[in-house]
């Protein structure tokens, strides 16, 4: 009797385990597995990738699996090794996974690995994707400089590293290109996922006079909430966040991961498994800039014209942002 019960319990635990990791099983043509540092509904970095891959599901008859909330090396390593033999493409969606991808990719030469943000495609079967977050940030900075009335703008940074440095620097330069006298305050929370700390930082910015805010990472939903409650404006990155606060989010820089993954799938058809650094730019169509229609009245024709020109300048390579 006890054996039966313990067998049943084990079975249930395993069933739950599979549900949690969201493993989906079906015979399909191309299989993609993903590992996320946060969740697929984080309204930021992870969701941008998940939504992107999901958009290709029907077109390529994809089999999609994913694991969320993986941070430590042991968990990530074992997840990668479990996925690698059974999937065509394995995406480790974070710069922090670099060393583990380096290790696992050597053992599975027929599997395509991808990770980012990084410029370092370590092996012939590894892609390093690399959003030029500073490009859209620059555009947002230009618009913000036109819209601010207090001439004070606040940035809520997660941690001064990687994408956040690029984003903040691009935004700052965009603002200064319009009006060098505008004060841009930066405050870091020291975390990527501390929603409450992000909200408190946003409130501190508002207390200091900021009427426009921006910031990156999944914690930014908290900061957007603060902007919405206090009637201030927000600029998004990674994903269109206007659904969180339709009255606050002016525009969003959108990472087109569906195009990045499409590129990998097409290359695989030609027998190329990786070995390339993939910058994400307006020039290659891996970046997009989207306005929130509800706040379109804030953007006059002149400003819209200016934004379009900036995007064209990025595409032609005329405008390049140096990260300070």
């Amino acid at each position: 009797m006890f054996k039966k019960i313990s067998f049943l319990i084990t079975l249930i635990i395993f069933a739950f385990g599979f549900l949690m990791t969201g493993a989906v099983y079906a015979e399909e043509e191309i299989s993609i597995a993903m590992i996320f540092p946060s969740t697929i509904d984080d309204m930021a970095w992870s969701q941008a990738m998940y939504d992107g891959v999901a958009k290709l599901e029907d077109e390529y008859n994809l089999k999609i699996s994913y694991s969320e909330n993986l941070y430590d090396a042991v968990q990530v390593g074992s997840a990668l090794r479990e996925y690698a033999p059974n999937y065509d493409i394995v995406i480790a969606h974070g710069a922090q996974y670099q060393n583990i991808v380096d290790d696992v990719a050597r053992d599975f030469p027929n599997t395509t690995f991808a990770f980012g943000t990084s410029y370092n495609a370590m092996h012939d079967n590894v892609y390093a994707y690399d959003p030029n977050a500073e490009e859209g940030a620059y555009i947002s900075g230009v618009i913000a400089a036109h819209l601010t009335e207090t001439n004070i703008i606040g940035i809520i940074g997660p941690v001064e590293a990687g994408d956040a440095i690029k984003y903040n620097s691009g935004f700052l330069q965009g603002v200064k290109s319009v009006n060098p006298d505008i004060k841009v305050n930066i405050g870091y929370t020291g975390s990527f996922g501390d929603t409450i700390a992000a909200k408190q930082m946003a409130e501190s910015h508002i207390d200091a006079g900021a009427d426009i805010l921006t910031g990156s990472a999944q914690q930014s939903v908290g900061a957007i909430r603060a902007a919405a409650e206090k009637g201030k404006l927000w600029f998004s990155t990674d994903i269109d966040q206007s659904i969180v606060a339709p009255q606050a989010v002016v525009a969003s820089q959108v990472l087109k991961f569906e195009e990045v993954v499409r590129y990998m799938i097409e290359a695989r058809k030609d027998g190329i498994y990786g070995g390339e650094h993939l910058p994400m730019t307006y020039a290659n169509g891996f970046l997009a800039y989207e306005f929130n229609e509800e706040l379109s009245h804030l953007i006059d024709a002149e400003l819209e014209q200016l934004v379009n020109e900036l995007i064209e300048d990025f595409k032609s390579g005329e405008l390049e942002i140096e990260i300070e």
């Binding site: 946060s38 969740t39 984080d42 909330n69 975390s191 996922g193 501390d194 929603t195 409450i196 700390a197 909200k199 999944q218 914690q219 939903v221 908290g222 909430r225 409650e229």
Partner: peptide, 18 residues
């Protein structure tokens, strides 16, 4: 307090060590 009087939302890891 943190979810209905402070953040006014819920997110994964809302408590964050508090």
């Amino acid at each position: 307090f943190l979810s209905v009087a402070q953040a006014n939302m819920f997110a994964n890891d809302l408590i964050a060590g508090r």
